[in-house]
Design a binder for these strands. Sequence first.
RNA 1: GGCCCCGUAGCUCAGCUGGAUAGAGCAUCGGUUUUCUAAACCGAAUGUCGCAGGUUCGAGUCCUGCCGGGGUCACCA
Length: 588
Amino acid sequence: MAALNYFEYMRDFVVEILKDLVASGTLPEDQDFKQVLVEPTRDITHGDLATNAAMVLANSSGLKPQDLAGQIVVELLKLDCVFSAEVAGPGFINIVLVDNFWHARLAEVLEAGIAYGGSTLGNNRPVNIEYVSANPTGPMHVGHGRGAVIGDVLANLFAKIGYDVTKEYYINDAGAQVNMLARSLHFRYLEVLGADVGGIPEGLYPGEYLVDVGKKLVKRDGDRWQNEKECSWLKPLRLFAIDSMMSLIREDLLALGVVHDVFSSERNLVESEGVDEIMTILEDKKLIYEDALPPPKGMQLDDWEKRPQTLFRATLFGDDVDRPIKKSDDTWTYFATDMAYHLDKFRRGFRIMINIWGADHGGYIKRMQGAVKAMTETAGELDVQLCQMVNLMDNGEPVKMSKRAGTFVTLREVIDKVGKDVVRFIMLTRKNDAQLDFDLTKVLEQSRDNPVFYVQYSHARCSSVMRQAAEIFKAEEISIEALRNSDFGYLIDPAELALIKIMAAWPQTLKGAAEAREPHRIAYYLHDLSAAFHALWSKGSKENTSLRFLSEDNLPLTLARLALVKALAMVIASGLELMGIEPVQEMR
RNA sequence: GGCCCCGUAGCUCAGCUGGAUAGAGCAUCGGUUUUCUAAACCGAAUGUCGCAGGUUCGAGUCCUGCCGGGGUCACCA
């Protein structure tokens, strides 16, 4: 059973009331209630919920917003779940719900456990989320890690609200760069065999990581490529290098807890003539022509040459210029193969496609969306989420990185240093289109300003209470089943209810985060939830010892509070699971 | 020069698709521990939401134009 989204629940009541007002002639016919919202109040002193219904509809009814609001309030007060409702400000209606209502939400949490907040909103519709897709030419850097986490958590989000999610990685294993990789490997290979190659030439990949690959190649093939011409070794070395890089990347992703469902190969597409087919389709639609592009306006390009190219009419779909799909050597551009790739996704049944790209690819969004529109007759929707740079810091100082100087810090090194869970959490502490500072020292600090610690600490405190409870009660007395049947009527302190209210907002938090494609909201939600719990904890520990979770002289009360603590642990665990993070039982 | 992103407290950032008196953390000042983890909590102080217009009952949020920072701009992927 899906948990109650109480905003929608209350909105239904409000709309019912409005319909009655239409029926009674207070409101004119043909009302559009789309703009009527039931939202959380920004200020808790205003109540639990607020609706703008009166303000939205006052104009058409000829009533003053406050007067219309007054009539709605009368009806709202008849509802069992409404404790109070009053007109405020320009015509808002502030609503406070009865404690009972919140207690019922607590029961829902305990019933659903870690699955709480999940739903079937997605109706099992297929969603394809493509992320990471790092070029197989070397190890991943920290920026790739950010895209990996954002994509992964977004995938979890969509799965949680009932979509059929496919997590996909596109391997750029065609084109010039993988030939460069093969040549770079050949140098390393010769080195391993004892030749003095005098360093890796400019333009090739100088990274040390290819030395190991060279060794493995010697182990497999001996010296058979040593004196061969490039045309004979290029293809086998390219394959060997790509395979090696991809297994390296997959190992690193696994270390980050990221596992893709599908790996698609660009080379496969090209070789299976999927790209040629695109040409046919687009030519039929008269979207392909030959011409030379004008140079970009206002830019100094001394070496600009007029060059006739095969172009796609991207401007018809909102792009700024038409885009080339063939290079002068007659091979496909990246754009052309990417079009074929997205048509392939569409044909596999995906109407919703989400790509996570680095911000440096921002200029490709319009043309790719245009291409998808053109190929799918607008039936396919491509959404691209850009993620900004990660600035690696150490104790407040930027970490200087240079590939050439060998001071390049890889994603794997960061994971090994601070742990996968910390990396995953920190990557979600900013919205994805803002730059992110990742401080290797600060993320391990145990203090309030480290959100990873702060959230984990609240979960650990829950565990601590349950451990203490096990000293007082028999196991079956504090089973989840038993806690569910405890008397929630004991939970009446504002701090306790505040905690339940935040828990009850989990379902709509999930929905909102998925729809806005903003996984960072999960991290912020967990932080807020933890803050409410730490506050309650401290309130009980000194201000008012009667608020302590465990009081041996009132066991029914204690059971109700244990139910609250247990439920909280479940919601935190639910959120952390979504983020791919293991909740801790104690801090050390 | 074109396009995209960003500009919110001294610093780092939220702001839930247009709601009420714009919020957290850090830093500053003051307080809380015989008792479930003080690795925490409570309180005080902090604003021209880059600037100027516009849209409307209502704008940090939407539209236009500027200013500042970053990214990107044909035969790389």
